[in-house]
Amino acid sequence: MNIFRLAGDMTHLASVLVLLLKIHTIKSCAGVSLKTQELYAIVFATRYLDILTSFVSIYNTLMKLIFLGSSFSIVWYMKYHKTVRRTYDRDQDTFRHWFLMLPCLLLALLIHEKFTFFEVLWTFSLYLEAVAILPQLVLLQRTRNIDNLTGQYIFLLGGYRGFYILNWIYRYFTEPHYVHWITWIAGLVQTLLYADFFYYYFLSWKNNKKLQLPA
């Protein structure tokens, strides 16, 4: 494991902790897209199907369990917790899951490294992760009131993707046979989706003003 990969995982972990902090302590999920959270739960469920059959390290297994557990518990809180669910922006969060999931599934069936059940679902999870943030970005654009924690959550998620790209570049030059076009292109698309958000995040940070997106 290199430093970029570790930094990526830690930013990812931090993003999840920020979101859980908001939900647990403020008992609010205002501005958080349930659609995006449900898509992440599906992403982790399909990617970590090998959790019992393929062991890499205790670190990997532990992180997989954390990402699975946190994504499903966030979904549970937003849907069923008696206080948290009342703060959910139901009417604004109208993105259709199928609109993203179906093309990703078709693409995974067409473009993959191996045509096996696990490999196709693993590839599907890569494609879906790339676009899973879209409902969240649409919700931000609609509500336009972004509290600090929600802003930090999205910033950290974007940071995680940025570090993973550095990790791939590092591994490409240090490891033989490390060539994974599908992972790279999906990851690059995912990172680019954050570019616009990053631009406004830095602008607000530079001017020391509250983050606000243009209409």
Binding site: R5, D9, H12, D50, S54, V56, S57, N60, M63, K64, F67, W122, Y164, N167, E175, P176, H177, Y178, V179, H180, T183
Partner: peptide, 10 residues
């Protein structure tokens, strides 16, 4: 996973 595999990432 084999050396050079992407399956050891999260």
């Amino acid at each position: 996973p084999k050396n050079g595999s992407a399956k050891d990432e999260l």
